[in-house]
Design a protein around this nucleic acid. Structure first.
Lengths: 229, 229
DNA sequence: CGATCGATTGATCAACGTCAATTTCAGTGG
DNA sequence: CCACTGAAATTGACGTTGATCAATCGATCG
């Protein structure tokens, strides 16, 4: 299963542009190295020295923590255009794995840091991403701490719907499997299934296949997550 | 209950130094304004414009989100020396409240940002704090998503033990009440009590009073949180 | 067409929440 | 200093949600 392929390495650098590139990150364009990772392959491990930051080009990446007894918590999913591994002190404290076959661009952190000292735009953009990450993690915290299983699943669908670049707006692609969703939401796979079936039964969603969900009633889903008095 | 007192405002600025000041933050020393907040008083509200960052001088502050139906999730406790409100985009997305009577120093964010452009040390220190915050929040996420009630309480005690400046090392001060702990851990107040009683019964802790806990067996507590196979 | 993996559904159970007393504690006034 | 009061903490009885265990279904791939 370990089939990482470095498409361009050393001095054979690939230029990285594309619609997902934010303005401030232009300075990174020339130092990225493209690499591919197969499904479930590790990009970096909890405890590894944090030598690179990454941007997802295609596929999906999960950031997770394994507990000694096998339990797993996924902190974040990264989709095309997302940066990850920006934060991190000397060592990563979470593991990053490809959810599906994925292509990522990696940037040497040392060089990113040096670029930051020179380019205020890059610096500000990086800081903004960090804020956004923290904010997303805090909202995730509220889901895990204070929402019911059904509310969490509804929130998850709306979250994904909000970050889908493509799609007709109501159809969501779920690159991850049910176990991944469960580990993101702090639930079991069975509970996720039951919540989805529940939403199907109440006509809030339709699932053409296991990796797609069509939102049929966004307002009702939203109301679910807000759980009014 | 709203009894905020600005001890020094306008040009009557108080110099802020002291043991809790990190080196990189020296540049902030001259722009801080000291203010006091009574128990349960709001420092800033979810949705407020984010005009200031803060440092806790004394007391304790909770960062929390209220759900429409009254449920509450506490994302973080800030103790003396901690900075908060550093992150934030234009608006705060959480509420900050004094857990006990507290004194904080506030810094105008605009001025902090300007200082950051000039002082790389400050910038790096601020970034490091942000990393630390994100990291703490991610660990919190694992607690809420994948730990049992007893494990969460044990983790919480060890977390606090790790950041106590004072104390003989095994005695922890709990400035917050049981409800605050419950809302931090995503539990009810009763479950927190029962977990604490459990730990007392197994001689892992002693509670001289409701706001102090003495760790009698750190290793066993640690083992609890790691929950080996 | 069978094999395999992931998803779904069902039956049961345990952990945690809810509701309801006490008990303890901090603050107040006599 | 002590009794009184209200708030917070603790404990108990019971209910609910979600976990666990197990079986079935469905899709993908040789």
């Amino acid at each position: 299963m370990q089939t990482a392929t470095v498409l361009a390495s050393g001095s054979a650098v690939r230029t990285q542009a594309g619609r997902n590139d934010a303005k401030g990150f232009g300075a990174l364009r020339n130092i990225g190295i493209t690499a591919s990772f197969g499904r479930n392959e590790t990009i970096f491990n909890d405890g590894d020295a944090a030598e690179h930051s990454y941007r997802v080009v295609s596929g999906a990446v999960r950031l997770c923590k394994m507990l000694p007894d096998g339990r797993r918590q996924i902190a974040e999913f990264f989709l095309p255009g997302d940066y990850f591994g920006l934060n991190a002190l000397e060592e990563h404290s979470f593991t990053a794995e490809a959810v599906t076959d994925s292509v990522v661009v990696s940037f040497p952190r040392r060089r990113v840091e040096r670029l930051c000292d020179e380019a205020p735009d890059l610096r500000k953009e990086l800081l903004a991403r960090l804020y956004a990450d923290l904010s997303a993690t805090q909202n995730h915290l509220v889901m895990l701490g204070r929402q019911s299983a059904k509310e969490r699943v509804a929130s998850f669908l709306l979250l994904l719907a909000g970050r889908e670049d493509a799609g007709d707006g109501d159809t969501i692609d779920l690159p991850m499997g049910r176990q991944d969703i469960a580990d993101y939401l702090g639930l079991t796979i069975e509970t996720v299934c039951r919540a989805l079936s529940d939403l199907k039964r109440s006509k809030l969603i339709v699932t053409p296949n296991t990796h797609q969900v069509v939102l049929k009633n966004r307002e009702a889903l939203q109301a679910l997550t807000e759980n009014e008095i």
